[in-house]
Simulated assay, not measured.
Amino acid sequence: MHITTDHHSVDQAITSPTDALSALHALDGKNSTQLIASNDNGCLMIGGGNDELYIVTFVVEEDTAFFNLLADARAQDEQDIALVTGGQKGLFPARLCVDKATATEALLYYIEHAAMHPGLNWEQDV
């Protein structure tokens, strides 16, 4: 499994959960704004980092389906939040902006199981 960050297009092999957490903690919303953990079955993309908020998307195989992780605390909030992901600033619905603990939980599960965390709230992007 590899994690790619957008900061100077670094591609690093992930050999432990510690490596994955280091890549997540490097996201700052300025110099490093997106990481992609991937394997043959798809990928988990995490973008943002500014204000400790993240957009987390699980992509199945060859872009067959996309699932966005929902922020339970802001599920009904209609406000948009500005985040930088993939080097581009964008406005995202608050319900899609998860905290660091939730992003960490999704990433660690993905690193171990190469799948979406079944205990988290995901919404298919149609």
Rank of each mutant, 00 (worst) to 15 (best):
T57V: 14
H25Y: 07
T102S: 06
Q79D: 13
L96V: 09
G29W: 00
T85A: 14
L91I: 03
T15G: 15
I55V: 14
M116W: 12
F67Q: 00
I14E: 02
R74A: 11
K30H: 05
D125E: 11
A20Y: 08
S16F: 13
T104L: 03
P118G: 06
L21K: 06
D99F: 02
F58H: 09
H7I: 14
A82Y: 01
L96C: 10
R95A: 04
G119W: 06
L83Y: 00
S16D: 12
L27D: 02
T5Q: 13
N121L: 13
A103V: 07
K100W: 11
Q79P: 00
L120C: 02
A75L: 10
A13M: 07
T5L: 15
F67H: 01
A94D: 12
L96I: 10
I81F: 03
A26F: 03
L96A: 08
Q88N: 04
D19V: 06
A115R: 02
S9A: 15
I14Y: 12
Q124F: 08
L83V: 02
G29E: 00
V84W: 00
Y109W: 09
G119Q: 08
T33F: 08
A82T: 12
I111P: 03
Q76Y: 06
R74N: 09
G90E: 12
G49T: 03
M1H: 13
I3R: 15
F66L: 06
T5D: 11
T57W: 10
T15Y: 15
K89E: 04
A94C: 08
G47C: 07
M45Q: 14
V84S: 06
A106L: 03
L91M: 09
R74I: 02
H8Q: 15
G87K: 00
K100P: 12
K89G: 08
Q79C: 10
E112V: 01
T18H: 13
D63I: 00
G47T: 05
L21S: 02
K89R: 09
D6E: 04
Q79M: 13
D6G: 07
A23C: 09
H117R: 10
Q76C: 02
A20V: 04
V60G: 04
A114P: 06
L70D: 01
G90P: 02
T33R: 11
L35D: 00
A82V: 12
F58K: 08
D80K: 05
G42F: 08
D6W: 07
V84L: 03
A71D: 15
S22M: 11
R95I: 03
Q34H: 01
L35N: 03
K89L: 04
F67D: 00
M45D: 11
I55T: 13
Q12D: 12
A65D: 00
E123C: 04
A106P: 00
N68M: 02
